[in-house]
Amino acid sequence: MRVKEFQAFLQEKKVDASILVSIGMEPDPNFFYFTGYEGAGALIIPQSGRPLLLAPKMEQERARKSRIKSVKILEKKRLFDSVREHVGRAKKIGMDGSALALNAAKALRKSFRKARTIDVSRKIRELRTIKTMEEISYIRRSCREADSILQQCLKNFREFRTESEAAAFLQHEALKRGLDVPFRPIVASGKHASMSHHAPQSTKLNKGLCVIDFGVKVKGYCSDMTRTIGIGSVPPAQRKKYQKLLGVQQQAMASATDAMKCSLIYDGVIRALGKDAPYFTHGLGHGIGVEIHELPNLTTSSIDRMQKSMAFTVEPGIYYPKKFGIRIEDSVLLATRPEQLTKTTKELIII
């Protein structure tokens, strides 16, 4: 994506080239961000000029469909020895300290013995927080797909006997559409909803409030949303808590403005929750993009600030142990004003 801006950073730090690699079963996020390529390989981003993507021979066809115009075969030798041949002499090399395992980092330094290394991962994560128009279009599509699938799930909900059946429906519908899911869907019914990251069970759906947390990936870009519904009867006191939390969530979304400290949004939610604040046990939200959790962080200790073209979630929740839980979450884009991207109704649906 924003290669030119990253190269300006390399020039400022006097880094000759930055090397990003992806060698696991899942594409490395920073590597994917610049390439749009999900296979194995190494990306060389020089201080100036065109980046170079090295990919195994078996991945050449796929690699040549990436954003990187210059693609060459990664020779069958030690990874960083092959990379060094294309980098040449360098005094300072950028590396992704968040992605390289200890042994891989040692191998890189061994191949570039005379060069100093600098961790560039924080800078890339910062670049990723401000979305380009292309990225925003992917996130919008991802949110539309998540809405469509979740709405279909709600229509069919009476057919599900267990939490795991409902979760499987969400995941299967995504796969049917050729989409990935960034995390296993959460379906937490009754007392299970008091656990914010409950794993769906193959036991009968419990009556009461039910938290459903779901998202998909389009072109590698994530959406994330949570709706709380009712199964059977929901006590009036819990309905009242739901309406209160909904008001808090809507107020928190509306309060986000350019340059605002993210911690202030979180602190505003704590004040609005009042007596329920001790039962809000996680952060208010997080950035979304090629990872489901990116910058900015919406927590009381966050040093991040809101900026235009950030995509993030707002997800207050209250969890009364062994009793019930409620969470309401939307994906949001900060444009001229905050724009809610996930549109599924937030009225308390009773099934």
Score class of each variant (00 low, 15 high):
Met1Lys: 10
Lys4Ile: 10
Glu5Phe: 06
Gln7Arg: 07
Ala8Met: 11
Lys13Gly: 01
Val15Asn: 02
Ser18Leu: 06
Ile19Glu: 06
Val21Pro: 02
Val21Ser: 13
Phe34Asn: 02
Phe34Ile: 08
Gly36Ile: 02
Gly36Glu: 01
Ala42Pro: 00
Leu53Asp: 08
Leu53Thr: 10
Leu54His: 11
Arg64Trp: 15
Ser66Thr: 12
Val71Glu: 02
Ile73Glu: 15
Ile73Cys: 05
Leu74Trp: 09
Leu74Met: 14
Glu75Gly: 05
Glu75Ala: 13
Glu75Met: 04
Lys76Ala: 15
Leu79Pro: 06
Leu79Arg: 00
Phe80Asn: 02
Arg84Asp: 00
His86Trp: 10
Gly88Ser: 05
Arg89Ile: 07
Lys91Ser: 11
Ile93Thr: 07
Met95Trp: 06
Asp96Arg: 00
Ala99Leu: 00
Ala99Thr: 09
Leu100Asp: 04
Leu100Trp: 08
Leu108Glu: 03
Leu108Thr: 13
Lys114Leu: 13
Arg116Cys: 04
Arg116Met: 13
Lys131Pro: 11
Lys131Gly: 04
Thr132His: 03
Met133Ile: 14
Ser137Cys: 05
Phe157Glu: 01
Glu159Tyr: 15
Phe160Pro: 06
Ala166Val: 04
Ala167His: 06
Leu170Phe: 14
Gln171Leu: 07
Gln171His: 09
His172Trp: 09
Glu173Val: 04
Leu175Ile: 14
Lys176Glu: 10
Asp180Thr: 09
Val181Trp: 02
Val181Tyr: 10
Ser189Arg: 03
His192Thr: 05
Ser194Gln: 04
Met195Phe: 14
Ser196Thr: 10
His197Leu: 12
His198Gly: 02
Gln201Lys: 15
Ser202Thr: 06
Asn206Met: 12
Gly208Ala: 03
Cys210Trp: 03
Ile212Pro: 05
Lys217Asp: 12
Val218Gln: 05
Ser223Ala: 09
Asp224Cys: 08
Met225Trp: 05
Arg227Ala: 01
Gly230His: 07
Gly230Gln: 13
Ile231Met: 14
Ile231Asn: 05
Gly232Glu: 10
Gly232Asn: 12
Lys244Asp: 09
Leu245Glu: 05
Leu246Phe: 12
Gly247Pro: 07
Val248Ile: 07
Gln251Phe: 05
Gln251His: 14
Ala252Gly: 08
Met253Leu: 13
Ala254Gln: 15
Cys262Asn: 00
Leu264Tyr: 04
Ile265Asn: 01
Ile265Phe: 06
Asp267Phe: 11
Val269Glu: 00
Arg271Pro: 09
His282Cys: 10
Gly283Asn: 10
Gly283Ser: 12
His286Arg: 15
Gly289Asp: 02
Val290Thr: 14
Leu295Arg: 00
Asn297Leu: 11
Leu298His: 01
Thr300Leu: 11
Ile303Gln: 15
Asp304Ser: 03
Lys308Asn: 10
Met310Phe: 13
Ala311Lys: 01
Ala311Leu: 12
Phe312Gln: 09
Phe312Lys: 00
Val314Pro: 01
Phe324Tyr: 15
Gly325Lys: 00
Gly325His: 08
Ile328Ala: 04
Ser331Lys: 11
Val332Ser: 03
Leu334Met: 12
Thr336Met: 07
Leu341Pro: 10
Thr344Ser: 14
Thr345Val: 01
Thr345Ile: 03
Lys346Thr: 15
Ile350His: 15
